[in-house]
Amino acid sequence: MAKYMLIMRGSDESNAKMAEASFDEMLEVVGRFNEELIKAGVLVAAEGLDDAAQGVVVEWSGETPVVTDGPYGETKELFGGFYILDVATKDEAVEWAKRMPAFPGAKCEIRRVPGVDEFPQDNEWIKKEKAWREQTGQL
């Protein structure tokens, strides 16, 4: 078993379609998909993000970081939300991604989430992070 993050990436096309769609309908479609994940026993976490126009980007192109307001001009893809799933293989994560409700033009990137156990356990910083995870009940 391994944890995979399914990262939703919207394009201008998919974002425009999403803006036109009925919110209630979207809630139902996404709700149904989430329920499938719960019934399959694989859902660990999921979050969706607010409008990109409300966001900012910090960019390291020169000596000091530059802050730009959303929606970031020529950006082709925008990170819109994520799922974390606990599944047996990458193929299983891919199969779930294929079932995700999405508008045409959207993409979903699938990346494994290494566990804190994969880092050197005697490292001071890893120890500190594990203690923090323990105290706060983080994933």
Partner: peptide, 11 residues
């Protein structure tokens, strides 16, 4: 695991 196997595992 192929996609057939992944579908099978889920379904």
């Amino acid at each position: 695991m192929t996609s057939v196997e992944a579908v099978w595992r889920i379904e």
